[in-house]
């Protein structure tokens, strides 16, 4: 292994990891930091389960290497809630019944969060486009769309 120190901001806190610089962010979050809220569904960018925010934008942590993360800000699903209240997006997913097995859900929540940050009042089409890269095998997406709409409403209050 060729390791080196990589520094970045993870969920608001500065962290330093000693890892191979070409390890993916997903590998480091899960296998090194054991921060398992971020899910590994395919490691190919096809499913969106590993979505995190990199400097506020939704990206695949499976297609981001540590060298690209250096000095940047990463937010994972654990960071949305922090120690306190769950985020409005998280609550909306819970309340609309959009969560079944839930393995895809952290990715959906992060993609939704990025959408609402960039566009607080998305149209139905905007929602579908923003989530088109997140696969869910349980829900048929109906309640996921409802959840996003609910989050929009709640956030607007």
């Amino acid at each position: 292994m060729r390791r080196r120190v990589v520094r970045f901001i993870l969920n608001g806190e500065e962290v330093e990891v000693y890892v191979p610089p070409a390890f993916t962010l997903l590998e480091v979050l899960r296998d090194v930091l054991h921060l398992t809220g971020t899910k590994d569904g395919c490691s190919d960018g096809d499913c969106g389960a590993c979505t995190v925010l990199l400097d506020g934008k939704a990206v695949h942590s499976c297609l981001t290497i540590m060298a690209q993360v250096e000095g940047r800000e990463v937010t994972t699903v654990e960071g949305l809630a922090g120690d306190g209240e769950p985020d409005v997006v998280q609550k909306a997913y819970v309340e609309t019944g959009a969560i079944q097995c839930g393995y895809c859900i952290p990715g959906f929540i992060m993609a939704t969060k990025a959408l609402l940050t960039a566009n607080p009042s998305p149209s139905e089409d905007d929602i579908l486009e923003a989530l088109r890269g997140n696969l869910c095998r349980c829900t048929g997406y109906v309640k996921i769309v409802e959840a996003v709409k609910k989050a929009v409403e709640e956030a607007g209050r």
Binding site: T38, P86, G97, I105
Partner: peptide
């Protein structure tokens, strides 16, 4: 809402 949903939504499950 399902009892297990919140833990799943915050990445705790």
């Amino acid at each position: 809402p399902r009892l297990d949903a919140l833990d799943k939504a915050v990445g705790r499950t």
